[in-house]
Amino acid sequence: MYAQLVETGVKRIKPLAEMSEQERSFQEKIDGEIKIEAKNWMPEAYRQTLIRQISQHAHSEIVGMLPEGNWVTRAPTLKRKLQLMAKIQDEAGHGLYLYSAMETLGADRDEEVAKLHSGKAKYSSIFNYPTLNWADMGAVGWLVDGAAIVNQVVLQRTSYGPYSRAMVRICKEESFHQRQGYEILLTMMREGNQAQREMVQDAINRLWWPALMMFGPSDEHSPNSAQSMAWKIKRQSNDELRQRFIDQTIPQLQLLGCTCPDPDLKWNAERGHYDFGEIQWDEFYEVLRGNGPCNQERLDTRRQAMADGAWVRAAAVAHAAKKAARKTRSNAA
């Protein structure tokens, strides 16, 4: 799911007049909505920004399997277990698409994963929050995948072709996950008992603000956005997307019969949007810095998986080499 706070390394957007011929023809393509493809020339900063963004996105899919993996062994019915397993499998698949898209830019998957494990590369802040009851599986689907979709629907029009095409495929599956997540909550609210309804409200209370943080810092604190927008990697600002998410999600919250943990939330008829309270930005930056509730556990699990699996990967490589050698010998004979 998602990339927030992607460095562009660019302090100031160059006007067309200052650009080299190559840069200008690139920018004209962007402005003309022509997709950039792997073999096309691109500014190095554009390439690096995309590598950072797509890898962050891919890492988020992989780390995002962990909060759900926490409940897949405890799903309460066979149907729910199957849904959750299918969803986790989709996420691994999304990770694979995204790493492939990233590799078209000349980046190396193993190197980028190593950056994740060393803490150098980021993943979405949302996956640093714990899943504490079954309703979290519904709320993650509804709110977290919901926020991802708002972000990703726009990214279908992102200027880099391979990324945009990956988003088209991923969005279809994400929409399905979101509906399933919402249906989990709706069932618990409408057919469940008091304890279950409390679980749903509790999950929403804990995940509401972290879901809003998925859109990244507010526009005034988002120094990289201008360049990303000029390159049309980003198509809409963090605050615009966040507002869209809130506007479309509140009616769904009301349909559930739940409340929003934001005392300042209210409809603003003049703006035609919901006004909402201030996000705890200190918390957001702490989580991004590695000080969220589960940052340590999530990275430890990934590092452990890589370390424990090293001998398996080595065996696969050794066996492939042996097989290839046997084939060469039998061809020679």
Partner: peptide, 29 residues
């Protein structure tokens, strides 16, 4: 197989282990 979630030796194996598990739970049902 569910217990392997997030702990497989490679991303392709995450996918495969969950895929096989999904088939089996479907059959169990």
């Amino acid at each position: 197989l569910c217990e392997w979630c997030g702990r497989a030796p490679a991303l392709e194996e995450e996918l495969a282990l969950m895929n096989v598990g999904l088939d089996l739970v479907g059959q169990a049902r």
